[in-house]
Computed example of a mutant assay.
Amino acid sequence: MNEDTSQLRPEWRQWLAENLALGVTEEDVQKVLVSSGVDPAVARAEVAAVGAHPYFRACRQVARHFGWMESLMDAYSALRAQDGGRELEVRHGVSPEEFFQRYYFGHRPVVLRGMMADWPALQRWSLTYFRERLGSVEVEVMVGRDADPEHAAFQDRHRSRMPFSDFLTLLETGTRTNDYYMVPRNENWREGGLSPLREDLRAPAGIIEPDLRQDMLTLLLGPAGTITPLHHDNMNILLGQVMGRKHVRLVPSFERHRVYPHRGTFSHVNADAPDLTLHPLYAEATVLEAVLEPGDMVFLPVGWWHWVKALDVSASVTFHHFRVPGGNTHLEPPA
Rank of each mutant, 00 (worst) to 15 (best):
P223I: 08
W189H: 06
F167P: 08
L220W: 15
G193V: 01
L168I: 15
T218K: 06
F167Q: 10
D215P: 06
P204V: 06
F254Q: 10
P204C: 02
P210G: 03
I208T: 05
R185V: 12
P252I: 03
N188Y: 06
L194Q: 09
L212K: 10
L168T: 03
N188K: 07
V251N: 02
T226W: 00
N234I: 14
R245I: 02
T228I: 03
L194F: 06
A203S: 13
D211F: 03
G244S: 12
L230C: 01
S195G: 07
R202V: 15
H257E: 08
E199N: 13
A224D: 04
A205Q: 09
N234P: 06
L212P: 07
V251I: 11
Y181A: 11
R161Q: 09
D200V: 05
T226L: 11
A224Y: 00
Y181W: 08
A224I: 07
R185I: 12
L197D: 06
F167D: 12
L170A: 14
K246Q: 04
N234V: 15
Q241I: 04
H231Y: 08
R245M: 06
P184E: 10
G192Y: 02
R249S: 02
F167W: 12
G225L: 02
R245G: 04
L221V: 09
V242Y: 05
R249M: 03
T177N: 05
T177A: 11
F167I: 09
A205D: 08
H231M: 11
L194M: 14
P210Y: 00
G240F: 01
